[in-house]
Design a protein around this nucleic acid. Structure first.
Length: 871
DNA sequence: GGGCCAATACTG
DNA sequence: CAGTAT
DNA sequence: GCCC
């Protein structure tokens, strides 16, 4: 269940657009009215949170999750060589160690030092065992079960201890590969479990590959060490004569560069065709150092800087950046200024000299040059924009209204997108049969028409800028990267808020004395309190591809997914925040220092970023990606979560065959396995549309007045969806309702052979029912289908809830909570008193549920169309 | 040390 | 109730 | 894991 496409997308609800007009001024007002002005707040979210702080939780969830992570990181559940390494730990009772003692570094260093060239700490004891013994597990291990305890459960049960007997050998592993060969991807429609061609985990194959990989790595590492001990790095034959560093001879001056980082860089340089030299001579093309320029010659034993003419003296980040993008970075920004008493501009000429001297400085350089040009082009472009934005009225206006500049081509220029919106506005299917009120006209049409206008120019410029900047990431001062322009509105919005926040701090100091705050600052404060909520900002799908930090984001995303699978909720959260911050960060991150400055990125993640910058890789990712494989696959089965997956893995099961033979599966799990391959695939938007039509047809054959909305990621406009979520309701103003239709619809769809499997049935009163199943268009693939019926009056709350995405929902619900309200799928309630653990003690008073707009307004959240809710 | 981007429904 | 789901 |  990819959180990404958690819930789907629909069109709009009756009155959402109605509010667009007054939203410019009103939503906020609502908020201020409800919120007593707190004059002394520093207007930071934190203060606000304290103000509404909850009772402390009594639970040990932290240690639990840490333990989970710890175990995972220790490789307990890894298929990788750490299995061996850990046996000792098991037997010596590593579980007794304090959780906090189990650090990630330990593990990473341990299992990966063979990747590095530095001295290799001795491997753990069992290293006498060949990798081939990986499959052998201890015959009996004790394993605590980790449960991510729910917040409101104050009392934790004692940990369950599973006593697990692990088969000496996994007899199925071999047979599995055969399965792999014979498996037919589509031909598994059979409903007879025995006949199912099971999807295959290809474990044995993977293990072989891993072993080979490891061997080769070790060999390589050994070679590296050998060379190192001889101190003749330059004798290493470049591994890739076409690499970005080919023909370059680079001298690293250690000084302030950390050994690990230095070695990693050297390795990479060599791997990409460069020569790493130890001693300075005239053949050196680049000197990499963190020393001040005036000291370089001394270190090199030169009389002065003269001998360095024609040679690039660069900061380490030049290497890092080049490695990360696998292109030579433009040297200019990384030049270490050499102290030249005679002429301050000397270093400039030194640069050009170097450029001339080393003509073999391949295409990378010239590309950098061209990017340089675009840099200027953008430079001219941007300030204008910036000015425009700044000149916009003070923050108040910006916060009150949706950003005046709408996303343009980024989201809208793809065919699917155009389709999305045109079909929406034409009230084609997904828009449902919703009888729009006259005064609502065609809200969506209006919405996008109005907003497209201002974007036209912008999108043109963005496109132009993008064309110019293809490699524009090299302008890593980066103020003018294309991302920035796209996100301009929100960026400057935030900038403005920062500025404003500074001002407010002054105001505040004074405010205590004369308490004469302007209405403006009050409002800004008010707004700022909730500024950190995701739901206060627009987020849209699919911006990573053009992000300058794509690589970093990808790696971190892998860790994020991993921790999510492990149900390490809080670590997941942190990674999510970090990734999210990076996505919004519009220039390439080029150092630890820069990374840690970004809110949401702390020491640990910044360190990881540095490693990615330096090596283009993250060893942690490598280590988990293998160990993760099986558990990832297991927990991808519908109905299987981390608990089952981890347990099965610990039991020694590695394939679906193992599970089917040895585990008592729930119905949902069986179905999940049967349809596994298909369900893993994303559903093209068009197919979701088509499927929605089928459901609509079935529904209307039951009652033509039913209204259907396809929600989830579809409604958010995603080009592909993970499942189909359809919300069904009926205007009850004629005294009838949709009561009882859900079973009929389902039966109808069964009869059409459209629904092929049921997963769950609702037992609720059918006015608000839930169905989960699997459907298939004839000749198509199995798709997850969710149907919900909701009371007509709750439509807005339901749409909001089922449209997601999950982050957006959590965010907006927390926001509600902070305002002493409660938001759920039924509506928004105020005057909620919450006890310890955040449990609401009373029902509160229902204040909004009919439309999304009502709810946004009541919460003081600026209206956000579904496509901006992908946080 | 402890909160954090939630609240609720079905299965076994 | 724990686990999995939305 | 991040941040108070």
């Amino acid at each position: 269940m990819n959180p990404e496409d958690n819930k789907s997308t629909t069109n709009d609800q009756p009155s959402s657009l109605l509010h667009i007009n007054h939203m410019n001024g009103k939503s906020f007002k609502t908020e201020t009215e409800q919120q007593p002005s707190s004059t002394s707040t520093t207007s930071t979210t934190t203060n606000e949170m304290n103000e509404y702080a909850f009772e402390p939780r009594i639970s040990s969830q932290l240690s639990c999750s840490s333990l989970t992570a710890g175990l995972d990181e220790m490789g307990i559940f890894s298929s990788q060589d750490s299995d061996i390494l850990l046996m000792d730990d098991f037997e010596t009772g590593f579980l007794k160690r304090k959780v906090n003692d189990i650090t990630e570094e330990e593990v990473v260093t341990e299992s990966h030092d063979h990747n590095t060239i530095g001295q290799q700490p001795p491997r753990k004891k069992i290293s006498t065992q060949p990798p081939s013994s990986i499959k052998t597990l201890p015959t009996e291990i004790k394993l605590s079960s980790f449960s991510s305890q729910k917040i409101n459960k104050n009392v934790r049960k004692p940990k369950t201890i599973y006593k697990i007997v692990v088969p000496k050998k996994n007899s199925n592993t071999t047979g599995n590969s055969k399965h792999h060969q014979t498996k037919s991807k589509k031909g598994q429609a059979s409903s007879n479990l025995r006949d199912i061609q099971l999807p295959n985990l290809a474990i044995s194959k993977n293990e072989r590959e891993f072993s080979n990989e490891e061997n080769s790595l070790q060999i390589k590492a050994k070679r590296g060490r050998k060379k190192n001990t001889t101190g003749k790095d330059q004798e290493i034959i470049p591994l890739d004569s076409n690499g970005i560093f080919s023909n370059l001879r680079i001298l690293f001056i250690q000084n302030n560069i950390g050994t690990v980082r230095l070695n990693l860089m050297k390795e990479k340089v060599k791997a990409k065709g460069g020569m790493v030299v130890d001693t300075f001579d005239t053949s050196v093309t680049h000197v990499v150092t963190e020393l001040p320029g005036k000291n370089v010659h001394k270190v090199l034993g030169l009389l002065d800087n003269k001998s360095l003419e024609g040679i690039h003296v660069l900061e380490p980040n030049w290497v890092s950046t080049s490695i990360m993008y696998d292109k030579l970075a433009k040297t200019e920004r990384y030049e270490v200024p050499l102290y030249k008493p005679t002429s301050p501009n000397e270093s400039q000429s030194s640069t050009s000299l170097a450029e001339k001297t080393h003509e073999n400085m391949n295409s990378g350089e010239s590309e950098s040059q061209s990017s340089h040009k675009s840099y200027h082009a953008l430079k001219h472009f941007k300030p204008e924009k910036k000015k425009q934005d700044i000149s916009l009225s003070p923050i108040r206006e910006q916060s009150l209204s949706p950003s005046p500049i709408f996303k343009s081509d980024l989201e809208f220029n793809t065919p699917s997108y155009s389709r999305t919106f045109s079909s929406s506005s034409n009230s084609n299917y997904p828009l449902s049969t919703m009888d729009r009120n006259k005064n609502l006209k065609d809200p969506l049409t209006k919405l996008f028409k109005d907003e497209e206008k201002p974007t036209d120019l912008l999108s043109e410029m963005i496109q132009e800028a993008r064309n110019l900047t293809e490699a524009g990431f090299y302008s890593d001062e980066g103020e003018y990267s294309d991302r920035m322009i796209v996100e301009e509105s929100s960026d400057s919005e935030e900038d403005m808020k920062k500025v404003y926040s500074t001002l407010l701090e002054h105001d505040e100091k004074k405010g205590h004395e004369d308490s004469s705050e302007t209405a403006l600052s009050k409002k800004s404060q008010e707004n700022q309190k909730y500024d950190s909520f995701s739901c206060m900002h627009k987020h849209t799908y699919g911006e990573v591809e053009i992000n300058p930090n794509k690589l970093i984001i990808e790696k971190l995303q892998i860790l994020l997914d991993h921790y999510q699978r492990m149900r390490d909720e809080w670590r997941t959260l942190s990674y999510r925040k970090a990734v999210s911050a990076l996505k919004k960060y519009n220039k390439p991150v080029s150092s630890y220092k820069e990374a840690i400055e970004i809110p949401g990125i702390g020491d640990r993640i910044a360190t990881k970023i540095q490693e990615i910058i330096d090596t283009g890789n993250l060893r942690r990712v490598e280590s988990i990606s293998k160990s993760d494989e099986v558990i990832k696959k297991f927990s991808a089965i519908h109905g299987v979560g981390s608990k089952a997956a981890l347990k099965w893995y610990a039991l020694g099961y590695r394939t679906f065959d193992d599970i089917l033979k040895n585990v008592k599966l729930t119905h949902a799990q069986k179905v999940g396995i049967e349809c596994f391959d298909d369900l893993q695939e994303r559903i093209p938007r068009d197919e979701v549309t088509e499927i929605s039509k089928v459901v609509e047809d079935a529904a209307h054959s039951t009652d033509p007045k039913l209204q259907l909305f396809t929600t989830g990621s579809y409604r958010r406009g995603n080009p592909t969806c993970g499942d189909i979520d359809i919300l069904i309701t009926r205007n009850d103003s004629d005294g009838k309702s949709h009561s009882g239709v859900l079973p009929k619809i389902i039966e109808n769809l069964h009869n059409r052979n459209f629904i092929t499997h049921d997963l769950t049935h609702t037992q609720e009163d059918d006015i608000s029912g839930k169905y989960m199943g699997i459907c298939r268009l004839s000749g198509g693939k199995y798709r997850r289908l969710d149907l919900f019926t909701v009371p007509y009056g709750e439509l807005g709350a339901a749409l909001l809830s089922f449209t997601g995405n999950d982050i957006f929902n959590r965010s907006i619900r927390l926001l509600a909570r902070k305002k002493k309200m409660k938001l759920n799928q039924h509506g928004l309630y105020k005057n909620i008193a919450r006890g310890s653990g955040g449990v609401s003690l009373n029902e509160g008073k229902l204040i909004a549920q009919r439309t999304e707009q009502e709810i946004f307004d009541a919460l003081g959240v600026p209206w956000r169309p579904p496509n901006e809710r992908s946080c």
